[in-house]
Design a protein around this nucleic acid. Structure first.
Lengths: 126, 126
DNA sequence: GACAAAATACGATTACATTCGTATCTTGTC
DNA sequence: GACAAGATACGAATGTAATCGTATTTTGTC
């Protein structure tokens, strides 16, 4: 049966907000905006609108029991990351995971990162 | 000095055409369209227009010496793949290459792919 | 219960991606 | 040199993403 492939691919702005929600956990529009504002000049109503759209798309769920609605991610960060990477592998790497890994690692990749990747490979069953 | 970071990120439709050009080498609009038509119902003038836009963006170069212009990719597939993956690593993986590799490999990854990745790691200097 | 603060809802605008119809141009052939 | 085939150029329509101003709603406080 495999995993549910119906995970919608978030847009760039949506991904920015999802990252905040994954990090903070459930949060109000104001809380999300406060965090986003640190690095971007995005207006409050823009964040609100995007969260509303994400709600329509079921990218987030929201708790409306309080005046300030509380938003939470609908899918895990892991699911979403998998979905995004599978998309990229199919569209830019001809479906080859090894080619993607090959490109992902370069001179700027730290020794620590490479060590982590080696450990990951060692831990695989196959 | 590192590599030129000004490589423009192609859109989805653009990437489709780039894939054709990387595979075929320099080609006319008709040749590109013939290939694209096999898998998609895209019109000839649509392919033409996208190639023209890509030319404006310097994603492709073109030879206008013949009536049918000949288009070729401006950047290598390797450069573009690197650019796309760096973008994804920064936007969806908090800048961690190892996390991306972790997500890229899953149950559906073939033994051959994993073997290829192991070899790649072994060949690294660090 | 009126007011102010702070929230959501709504709608319009802007930007960009994608598509394709139609106009125009180029060139080989007769 | 006229014509037809086949090419490019152009512009409009459509769809989606992103942004934000303004209207409306909610609620605590006096």
């Amino acid at each position: 049966m495999a995993q549910d492939n119906s995970v919608v691919k978030p847009t760039e702005a949506e991904l920015t907000l999802l990252n905040v929600l994954w990090k903070m956990g459930p949060a109000t529009v104001r809380q999300v905006h406060d965090v986003v504002s640190i690095t971007q000049k995005t207006g409050y109503t823009t964040v609100l609108k995007i969260l509303q759209i994400m709600h329509e798309k079921s990218l987030v769920i929201r708790d409306e029991s309080n005046r300030a609605h509380v938003y939470a991610t609908a899918n895990s960060q892991t699911q979403t990351q998998s979905s995004l990477i599978k998309d990229l592998i199919s569209k830019a790497f001809g479906g080859s995971t090894s080619k993607l890994v090959m490109r992902a690692i370069d001179d700027s990749t730290s020794a620590q990162e490479i060590s982590d990747i080696r450990q990951l490979l060692n831990s695989l069953e196959k």
